[in-house]
Design a protein around this nucleic acid. Structure first.
Lengths: 224, 224, 224, 224
DNA sequence: GATGAATGAGGGTTCATTCAT
DNA sequence: AATGAATGAACCCTCATTCAT
């Protein structure tokens, strides 16, 4: 039994190694240029092993995407939970999440947007996560509005906010013509206008540890 | 000479056919699954002919993207020029452009966002056009603000507006959980808030012909 | 009738242009890299025209080879006929022929040696011309030997001489490590040894015009 | 380790199979008509495997040529080392080498002469080996001349001898109008004349085993 | 007679996948 | 569990040839 457990751990470790290698390869070579070869080279494991752990390449890509989204989600939770502030502050920091770190894997998401139309599972995952995020944001908007006795179309407000985040993120990745700080400033401005808050009260960077957080899907450190 | 002219016209027609077929193929099969085969099938022409008109597949993809962006740009000009209204109205309708028609090719752009990282020319074109758009929008924002004696950070405002557009567009394409009208309403709301205008004064749909406009890059009608 | 004649001349001129362009292309791009395209570019005529004058590419290559061999043969005759000397002198200069000019097309022959095994007609032509040369040389050897009252195996002598020529030519083309003058010196030495002649009596270069001679297959001047 | 060694041996065996199949294909179809298809058919292995063992087709062709030249070189060494005779005898048999066996691959060399102008590495190998051969021959000529107190231009003599060999070989391959024995007789005659030796003293065929010799590059037996 | 648009077979190469070891 | 040799389909591209103009 000890051995079986050990084996399972090893197996899981192997799976993770392959998943992380996949993300690295996607990041380095792009989507179409990521092959079984580049992935196995990145992992230091053999090509054949991939078939051992994953049904096929698509499966691996899907699982890798799930892994990446898991990390994003865990970071989101971490930021929201760690932040000591009221509804409004939590709302602000929760939408700032994409602009509070630079993992080096941001660009990769664009490839998955494209791949989503070839891999239905990826599209499903995307819509699921994005939908949950928007619902979550909409609830926070409702709470902050109720707190202030404000009336607003929370559905449209949530769409506005989440898509402003998405648009800022997309432009930041694609154009590299403005900074993450610009993004946070823009988001704070919009939120403060909506909720009649004073921007000065909310520092652009939350006072929490942004580098360490609990996640079952750690991303490798990239230094190039 | 008549003949030469005729021949050249024919040639141009063939080029266009191949370009449009490429866009159709990209739309239907996505980037990675669009091959010389799918394109030639879509066009009804032979595989070899593609090499006759384009240096290689990448060249064709780049030219096709240029063609598509040309159409988008021409539609943008059409909307802005046709609209009879002041600075503010023109600003509103110019950012509403992506939500004033549904060509069926919107999803294709996502594939090009991904392809941009493999084809530097595509990235260059993207950044060039997006940059020019944002500059254009920033000028309009300045003009509208000046008109009203308002002071604002036009750079951040332009980023906010263009990226709100991009984000709304991205979510609309990827999630299909809200409408183009939602998008226009959101944009109108943000603009009216910034410029203290009354939304009721600006109908969501401009009173112009949205289906016919001059362009050297017409898109085919899609019905599936 | 005048017109018909004119037309025919024009046709023949076109054929020649294409043939010469073929030789130029073979020289410049080598055998495998010479395509209908490179040939038509070299000739300044259209691709389609080649099919008008030649059955197919192989036909053109064969005719071009015939053309080249014709030129070589005509130069051979020119040298032999122009030289004012006895049997021995004529023999010497006739075998020196390959080393009395540098047309720039020598290397091309190597490609035809290879092509001969794919194009039976080329092999036939090669064997025919080489056979006639050797017979011719053998006759001259016989005559020179008879003149001097020498007895020798003229068959083996002819093989020796013609193949020494071929070998010198091949090495000169392939290795570029010795000169045409070396070749003529070697041939003179061998001949003088066989016929007890004094090399000093026979200058390495015959006193004739080596650049102008009658031929139906003129080669273009190469200057690169 | 046993397995690794076994695997490596297997790999090397596959490489050799592909190389030999390449030589066979070149022999049968010539240079231009030898394709990945003909080679894989000749080997009985799949097309894809070639890319597994060789960088590309050119690489395979170059390696195959190297292999063939290795065999030729090893046979040369074998003949020279096995022959029990003085400087002169060794010289005679060393130049007779091309006419002491018929592997069935002679014609193939003509294709490589042509290919050399497309594949610089092949030209380099050719010039290297031919250069070394001539130097070797020149040394033997010097030694034999010194032995007899003869004075001669050893450079020209070496060129004469090696190119007589090449020319005889070329004519033998291309024309098939004389025999290998003719060639050996011609070479013996020339050598004996130069060194005042009696041909009768040197049998045309050396008294050694011509079919078995050590080589890392064995050629297959051809029977068609 | 002359053109070059159009074809499609076949070229080399890549790559996900299988499978014997 | 792990390897990498082996496969073959599909990729992009080249090219000789055909044919409408």
């Amino acid at each position: 039994m000890r051995r079986a457990t050990k084996m399972r751990e090893t197996s899981e470790a192997r799976r993770s190694e392959l998943i992380v290698a996949t993300l690295k390869s996607l990041r380095k070579h792009g989507y179409i240029n990521s092959t079984i070869n580049t992935i196995s080279e990145e992992s230091g494991l053999s090509r054949g092993l991939i078939s051992h752990y994953f049904a096929n390449k698509d499966d691996l890509l899907i699982v890798a995407h799930k892994y990446y989204l898991q990390n994003v989600d865990d970071f989101f939770r971490h930021v929201v939970w760690s932040t000591k502030s009221g509804h409004f502050g939590k709302l602000f920091y929760s939408v700032s999440v994409p602009f509070l770190r630079d993992t080096g894997f941001e660009q990769m998401l664009v490839h998955y947007f494209s791949a989503a139309w070839m891999l239905p599972e990826v599209l499903r995952m995307h819509r699921d996560l994005w939908g949950r995020y928007r619902t979550n944001i909409q609830h926070r908007i409702s709470a902050a509005a109720r707190e202030r006795g404000l009336v607003m179309d929370t559905r449209l407000a949530a769409i506005t906010l989440t898509q402003l985040v998405d648009g800022l993120w997309l432009g930041w990745v694609m154009e590299e013509s403005y900074t993450q700080e610009d993004c946070r400033m823009i988001l704070r401005k919009w939120l403060c206008e909506q909720f009649h808050e004073d921007p000065e009260m909310y520092p652009l960077t939350p006072d929490i540890d942004l580098t360490h957080f609990e996640t079952a899907a750690p991303l490798p450190h990239i230094d190039d």
